[in-house]
Amino acid sequence: MLLPEVHVAEPVTISAAADLLGITVDTIRYYEKEGIAPAAERGPDGWRRYDTAALSWLAGTVMLRGTGMSMQEMREYAAAYRAGADDVARLALLEQHHEAVLARQAEVWRHLAALERKIAAYRETIAVSDTHSTM
């Protein structure tokens, strides 16, 4: 399993699902409206109920969004799944996104290194300035 498993003994409300996943109720509703997550089953009271399978799908959606996958890419992945795309096709979508994440990560590391050099330069300037002012 790629994500922490989310198991529930009984289906939970949308509020409980949001709490378990660390997202808002509005986010869940948005993912459902956009076709990224399947609409939840409804209980006898008419309220949405999220079982382990629904929570797992939502957890995957949260993970993909957390890696920077665009909403359009998430829609495409969900549509491929619903259309019955085989594992090879879905794997290709995820591998393409993986490459994009690695490229962004490399860029962030380059920027971080530049930031650290800048911080070091300021610290050195301040240390030299403090040394001259105490003389």
Rank of each mutant, 00 (worst) to 15 (best):
L21E: 02
R42T: 05
Y77I: 08
G60M: 10
V101P: 09
A17P: 00
V88S: 09
L102C: 13
L55F: 06
I23P: 00
V8S: 05
L93C: 04
H111T: 08
Y77R: 05
Y77M: 09
H111N: 11
E124P: 00
T13G: 07
S15V: 11
T13I: 01
A121Q: 05
H98V: 02
A39N: 11
R117M: 02
E107S: 15
M63V: 11
T52G: 06
Q72G: 08
T134W: 09
T52W: 04
I28S: 01
V88Y: 07
A59K: 10
R123C: 07
S133W: 11
E76P: 02
V128E: 15
T13W: 01
A89R: 13
Q96I: 05
A79W: 03
I23C: 13
V62P: 04
A80S: 04
A127R: 10
T24Q: 06
Q96R: 15
D51H: 01
S133Q: 14
V101L: 14
V128L: 14
A9V: 07
A18R: 02
E107A: 15
K33Q: 14
A80N: 01
G46Y: 12
A100E: 14
H98N: 13
M69N: 09
L55N: 03
D130Q: 15
L55M: 08
T125R: 12
L58H: 04
D45H: 08
T27R: 09
D26I: 00
V8H: 06
L20G: 04
A106S: 14
A40Q: 03
V12P: 05
R123T: 03
P11N: 05
R82D: 13
E10M: 07
I23Y: 01
A9M: 05
V88D: 08
A40T: 02
R117C: 00
M1G: 14
T61L: 03
L2S: 13
Q72T: 15
